[in-house]
Structures are given as C-alpha cells and as structure tokens.
Amino acid sequence: MTANLTQQIRDRARDLLQSGTVSCFIAWEPARFEHWRTPVTIESPDEVDRIVVDEWCDQLIAKYALQRRGDGRIGMVARGCESRAVERLVADRQVSRQDVYLVGVGCTGMLDRDGGAPLKKCEECQRRNPVTYDEMVGETVEEPRPYRFGEVDRIESMEPEQRRAFFDRMFSQCAMCFACRNVCPACNCRSCFADAERVGWLEKDFGLDASRYWGLMRAFHTGDRCIECGECERACPMGLPLMTLMHKQVRDIDRLFGPYEGGGLSDAGPDPLRSYRTDDVEEFM
C-alpha cells in the first residue's frame, strides 16, 4: 500500500460526498492505540480527514453497508475482500449493486495490530484486487494465489479419533460469543437460529455439545457462500481455527459442483447448495 493512499482516499471521499454521489463513506479511522484501526462511516465532507487507509486496517468493512440500507448510495473502500463481500450481499439480495459505490484499492495484505506479523487471512488471500468496483485508486497488485488448503490436508490425513479430538478441543474452547457470526458477510439473516427463544434448539450453556452444534451449524449455514475473507477466525477472541471447516467446504463444493467460489464470482447461476436441478449430483442416493 502506497504512502499517499490515505490522502487519495480522503480526496475521493470528499469529492463523492460533496457531489452527492454517496450519502456516506465507509472506511477506517485510527483507534485508541497505535496500529489500531476501527471502521468509520463518514457522513460529511468536513470529516474525511479522519480516514486512514494503511496496512493496519485489519477489519472487513463491507457488512457495515447493511446498517445504512435505504439511506442512499453507500461509498466504501473496497479491497478484494470487501468487493467479494459486497458481491455476497448482492447475491443474498441484502443490497443492490447500484446502492453501493466501491472505491477499489489493490491490497498487499494487512498486519497484526499486536506485533506486526502478516495476518493469516491475508496470507491465504486469493483476491487481493477488487473483483468489482466503480473506480480504482492506485494500481492493481500482483495476485500470488497461495495454496490455502494445507491445514485441511493435515486434518484430512488424521485418523478419525485424532480428528474428533482436534475439533473437540477447538469447540471446547468456544466462548459462544458469536463474534464469528457478527463479522461474517454471509451471516446476514434478520434473525439467527442461535438467538431463537425456543426450547431444545441451541442451548445457552458453555457445554461442548452446544458449542459444537453452534460451530457446525454456523459452518453449514455459510459453507456454500463463504467468501474466504477469514474474518471469523480473525475476530475469534479464543483464536480458534474456524477457517479449517470453511476451507474444507469450499474445496468439497468445488470438487462436487465444478469451479466455484463463494461471493458470486462465477456466473454459473445460483449458489450450488441453493439451486434445484434434476441432474444435480446425488451420488449418495
């Protein structure tokens, strides 16, 4: 990311807000500590100098668009992950593409606010450049497309007991805080099953059963639509390897249904798990 990117984005945000193209502009601003950034929604051209766009902007901001629905066009900085998240929200009919104005930037990866190491989600990133945008600021960047299924390979090679132990250890640490859901751009239901006030659904205690149920249901509810932004894993306060299940599903869906990536990247029609076709793969029947 170039040094003057922040200034370029501020200029663009000011222009867009002044000209009335957008009613608000979503980006990041510095937070309480050094290297901490927090999402910000700018509503007035006078406030654009709050915006910072640099290698510490670790959070995905696309989902904030949902809070501004119906208030006019929403401006937003769009890296690869934001653009895919917007595509996801469009495919889920939560926003329409015309309601969002994307200022695209190429991204070379973000750094961990504690210690400055590259973020895992950025090291696995498949789309550093936005897949959709209304204008680009700066140059596009090279796409290394690293292999991201190493952990899946490792778990697949385990014995069933080992594998069970791996996931039991993972889920037993879950604090059921639902941060993974709250950041996920594919988790855009109006009401989540986890919040249902029904007896016998999701238990509210901290048992392994409940957290395993939550973890698997969350993975299945988003599995065919995961854009692999890695936000669930980054947001998890317990540091659980949540992307293992997501990567596994992404790869399985690719193998079963052909080349496919969540986030509406392929034009093959609706998501594979939400379509009805008589010639569908059903080797299990």
Binding site: R93, Q94, R190, S191, P270, R274, S275
Partner: peptide, 15 residues
Amino acid sequence: VSRCSGCRACVDVCP
C-alpha cells in the same frame, strides 16, 4: 415475514 430477509434461497430451490 418478520424473519424473512428476502435472500431468495427458497425461490431458487423450489421445484
């Protein structure tokens, strides 16, 4: 309807 977010998944799967 209070829970429906209009995501269209049901429309896509309905045979």
